[in-house]
Nucleic acid binder design. Structure first.
Lengths: 108, 108
DNA sequence: TGAAAATATGTCAAATATGACATACAATCA
DNA sequence: TGATTGTATGTCATATTTGACATATTTTCA
């Protein structure tokens, strides 16, 4: 595991404070985090492209601006279900989602 | 929305008991359910192919046999996160997941 | 500039998902 | 057959995720 990768995750708020904790992440957990971060990035990109505010997306999602912010920030408290829903309400297709999920977000 | 589709969802335990409730599902919610059912099917297929019992998978996943059963049954109480984790611990790749997610599980 | 709009961050009660357990049912096979 | 193994179903206390809210910070632009 590279330092750069660790920093990226820490920066996002994932609880990887100590080396021990970080090493405690299984490869599967890492991949899941990768996928969620990829979805978060896609979400922000799509929203920006559509010129929507976080408030706008919150309305479409029936959620709140603060939660949308947390989603885009890739906070650990956000479920994959919610990320996917958000992309769908912004008009993303299943294919779009598949592509995003297949994307490695952090260099291995 | 076709009857066949509705029956499939009802059979899985999704709360679509009445026509009104069913019609209350937004297209995005339907797609999300589709995706989760596709993951559930993939999960069972992979487990069977690997000749693992639900108990075996539960151990890998640090979960329980009953939850694995519910996952495979496509119960609404199961998160996408958990489905993805399950596939990952069984050795599925991000690419596999992407493919599954791109798959329409129920005829539109 | 400065004020308005957008975004970020922190908190919390309510809603939902979770593993664990008991137990029912089904499949396998000696 | 029945006994063993595997799967399904229901329940529940606990854990996590949620929308909402307040408020801080940043961005935008006249």
């Amino acid at each position: 595991m590279k330092q750069a990768k660790r920093k990226k995750l820490e920066a996002k708020g994932w609880k990887v404070g100590t080396a021990a904790e970080f090493l405690g992440l299984s490869p599967e957990e890492e991949v899941l985090i990768d996928m969620k971060l990829a979805l978060a990035r896609h979400m922000k990109a799509l929203r920006t492209r559509k010129k929507l505010s976080q408030k706008d997306v919150a309305k479409l999602l029936e959620s709140s601006q603060s939660r949308v912010a947390k989603m885009e920030a890739g906070e650990p408290s956000v479920s994959m279900d919610l990320l996917v829903k958000a992309l769908l309400v912004m008009g993303a297709s299943q294919k779009d989602l598949a592509k995003t999920i297949a994307t490695k977000s952090i260099a291995a």
